[in-house]
Design a protein around this nucleic acid. Structure first.
Lengths: 211, 211
DNA sequence: GGGTGTGAAGCCGTTCACAGCA
DNA sequence: TGCTGTGAACGGCTTCACACCC
């Protein structure tokens, strides 16, 4: 697919494509071969028009009678969001949360895999958690370079997040997913996504309070 | 603050208010008493105008010379997003992720606390994880009613999410935060927020791939 | 000058409405 | 009839631009 077109896909569509793929993989495993836009929409709690718009953006055309071919669509989404030769990820902070993510991710995606964990706790160094080898943070640059890691997930406590992000950037990480409660700063050329569970929970609590 | 005004605050502003408060609490603990909009903005990676807009929406006025009074602002945000008499939360699925959330949350907010965990693993039932007592899922309705729980977090494996959400709704939960990879369906009057870590990671990976 | 507060404009994602097709 | 594909309208959030103030 044309690079220029891919570059113009909005963030939100990228997120939804990822979600569509997950839903489609489940449908495929249930033996379905085709699906209508309104079926996808219902699963994702959005409208059918939205689904068709997204598929329009990536240039996919469905069949009028049977809807979209699930296998083809999964493949097409793969060509857009996956990297040809796979991407490697490291987790910074192998506490409860780091372990949870490693376990959650184990073997879910061929082209995106967690290959290293970093921590400072000597009891964890040298062990393997959910199939992910744990190294001391001091070896970050060495391992990142050796393992060709470009993406890092921050799961250290809030007060260490800023410092950790600095190390990641210095070692050549180009994409950071920050799950700590502290926002971090990165250079322009590093993609940063931050998510805080407390904010989400407070939001839910707010709307529950307001009925 | 006037209820009608609160109802009109957009979702995004609510999220940012939660984030502002977190940042402000840190500033307060560092001994600062006042802060400018551009300082808040920088922490959150947004613009100063955006911050001022949000504060305008909630009717807060700063001091021209010194900016915003941190203590007052924290208090005001509290009156908007917190519930007067506190809200109680349950975690469904005390695996790695459920444990991580419980630990992460322990003692962070007075007005929002995790008071129960549910699981099916007999080894966990009756124990306490990160200060949260664990019950068998069969007792969900009993405990939810007794503990006056209105909010639930789903951290069960994807294939059990739909079923778990059903139980939650049936037991009277009014707000759900779904961290499982499977979207769930809930009635109109239940507030639902879904977040999937794989989607976020795929998004980061996509933008790293695209430079 | 460097802040705040805000009407107006701009932008971007979503939804409407409908043509086209099997 | 019931779906897809899409130009056009809509709406809500963000940014511009500027008045005002110390």
């Amino acid at each position: 697919m044309d690079q220029d077109i891919i570059k113009k896909i909005p963030h939100k569509t990228i997120e939804r494509l990822s979600q569509y793929r997950r839903a489609l993989l489940i449908c495929l495993s249930q033996g379905k071969t085709h699906i209508f836009s309104h079926e996808v929409a219902e699963i994702q709690h959005i409208t059918a028009v939205q689904v068709r718009r997204d598929l329009m953006l990536i240039g996919y055309s469905g069949n009028l009678r049977r809807g979209y071919n699930i296998k083809d669509l999964i493949a097409l989404i793969g060509t857009i969001i996956d990297s040809q030769d796979g991407q490697r990820v490291a987790v910074f902070g192998m506490g409860n949360f780091g372990r949870a993510i490693s376990a959650y991710f184990e073997g879910r995606r061929e082209r995106l895999s967690i290959v290293a964990g970093f921590d400072v706790n000597p009891q964890k160094i040298g062990t393997s958690i959910a199939g992910v080898p744990v190294y001391h943070i001091d070896r970050a640059c060495e391992i990142i370079s050796k393992e060709k890691i470009k993406i890092g997930i921050i799961t250290v406590p809030g007060n260490q997040a800023v410092e950790t992000a600095k190390i990641m950037v210095d070692c050549g990480i180009k994409g950071i997913l920050n799950y700590s409660p502290s926002p971090v700063k990165v250079p322009e050329d590093v993609f940063l996504e931050e998510y805080d569970m407390i904010t989400s929970l407070e939001k839910v609590a707010f709307y529950v309070k307001e009925h």
